[in-house]
Nucleic acid binder design. Structure first.
Lengths: 323, 323
DNA sequence: TTGTAAGCGTTATCAG
DNA sequence: CTGATAACGCTTACAA
């Protein structure tokens, strides 16, 4: 920066004011033009560390997550990054293995970098416990909840998701609708409530035998769907807790000599593109706004974090061919 | 740091030496102990920016990628991060939308952060063109190649992958093996060579009508497999360019009234867990060492980058139930 | 083995 | 509007 100033016969401060586009200080347009010209000519590039040191603002945000490898991670990362970029901030992403508990050393490293906020995002909707040190900066959780309830979280509206999916099936003329739910405590409760609300609204009696649950994978989906389809009065539609479970359900339908949609309508959950868009037939499913969630976390950190106590976001139905 | 020094009646340099564990300077063990004790007691945490400024070493590495959302991304990010961590380095991950060309503004931002190296990784094995500015620091490409051939790349051995998959099928007793290849020019060529080498080695004539190609998705896999299975002398085994194509091929096999493995063996490529592990039957497929590739990129940046002209890594077969 | 002092590249303050 | 000058928190010769 000194070079630029010297080259122009200006002081370093003036160059600094121009480069930071400070509106509280009036600089001649001509001067600004010359500064920018010299900047490109001399190939000057600001030094982020020096800037941080002098201004005691790093514009760094930490994102700790186990989702880099999950199909949901992309959305959260993309959304968070876009929002950070718009705020002139840089995202320090740290990917951890398990969502069980963040590695304290990783958090420590982020704090050494003087991140000005921390986002903790998980692939599954779970309860987590962060290292004590995290509390030193503002923290927002995404898709998970703090066991101690100390930090605000951004989580999907599971009840609404369950309602939306079930409603779609009811609108398709179905009266006997099976729910192949997730075992996990947190989300399943909400989805089931939504499922039941949709049924009641339509004047359909809730038949508890039509509600089963298991793990998130295709294997469980297959077994559970098979179980339901063997009833003497089997459901004509299935709402599955994950797209992978729906993938298994498809196989169960076929095994029973039936056809997806024609004989048994299926709605999934997640809109995991690789599965949903390529299954045959393609899968109608509930999509969650992961990008928005990532962006919302950044916005929360940039806003009134003290006054932010989390938010619940709604998903929507992606209509394809299975229902 | 001054506080720690004052607290102990030492100079700041001494504390600095201890904290950085400098072996070129001999410090009394007792002094070291006292320093670390005071560090925890006072809750001192080094300031990364100040350290960078003073030492002109940032220990920052930039990772630009379009893979955050891809199933391969996780591995590369995880591997790169682990290696970076071991070198005491921090990864600045920037996720971009398309692999076509990195956003120059993103690279510029990384350079302002004074990253000491740049990794550019893509989901697909493609040719890319980086902004001019990237050349200011060492660059390593992962899973892609520079159109100008300026930067070293770490890419998978496609020929070996093709050979491995085909060989597995031959060992399973198959003589007529279909290749459902990717359309993309770069990788397909190599895989096909490997496929042909395996056949020739086994004394099997290469039948060009058994080689078809299309896009990477299940739809293409379905169409192409169907096409091959309609031959009067259809293949008894299929090697598919991606797991998603294999997913489509499964459907084609079923549609033809045949059974996967029993009637038609199928081998995929990618080991995309969500597909491979949950397909019914589960998919035997070629896995690529993405974690190792990510780690290798970091190692290359830390090693003799001038002398590094890229490397080719080998995948392996993951045996499941489809072949 | 420890201390002193001079930067590192900015921003911030304050006087002109 | 512009220019000195003092931080920012640390590393690193160089001295002691």
């Amino acid at each position: 920066m000194g070079d630029v100033a010297r080259h122009l016969g200006l002081s370093r401060s003036t160059v600094s004011f121009v480069i930071n586009d400070r509106t509280d200080i009036r600089i001649a347009e001509e001067t600004k033009r010359r500064v920018w010209e010299a900047v490109t000519e001399l190939g000057y590039r600001p030094h982020a560390a020096a800037r941080s040191l002098a201004s005691s603002r790093t514009n760094l945000l930490g994102l700790v997550t186990d989702i880099a490898s999950s199909p949901f991670g992309g959305g959260i990362i993309t959304g968070a990054q876009r929002a950070a970029w718009e705020h002139g901030q840089v995202l320090l992403i740290v990917s951890i293995d398990s969502a069980a508990s963040a590695d304290a050393a990783m958090i420590e490293m982020l704090l050494e970098q003087r991140v000005e906020g921390l986002i903790y995002a998980t692939a599954g909707h779970v309860a987590v416990s962060l290292p004590e040190a995290a509390a030193e900066v503002p923290v927002v959780l995404v898709h998970c909840e703090d066991v101690d309830g100390r930090y605000p979280s951004i989580i999907p509206d599971e009840e609404h998701g369950g309602y939306t999916a079930t409603r779609r099936l009811i609108d398709g003329g179905h009266r006997r609708i099976g729910l192949i739910n997730l075992d996990a405590p947190l989300p399943s409760a909400g989805r089931r409530s939504g499922y039941e609300r949709a049924l009641r609204e339509a004047g359909i009696d809730v038949d508890p035998t039509l509600v089963v649950s298991g793990s998130a994978d295709a294997g469980a989906g297959f077994e559970l769907a098979r179980q339901l389809l063997r009833f003497t009065d089997p459901p004509s539609a299935l709402f599955c807790g994950t797209d992978r479970m729906a993938m298994g359900a498809f196989d169960a339908v076929r095994e029973a000599g039936l056809r997806v949609r024609t004989d048994v309508a299926v709605v999934g959950y997640d809109d995991q593109e690789i599965v949903a868009a390529y299954l045959r037939p393609t899968l109608t499913t509930v999509a969650l706004p992961f990008e928005e969630m990532g962006a919302a976390a950044v916005e929360a950190l940039n806003g009134d974090i003290e006054g932010f106590d989390g938010s619940i976001v709604r998903g929507w139905l992606v209509e394809r061919d299975s229902a």
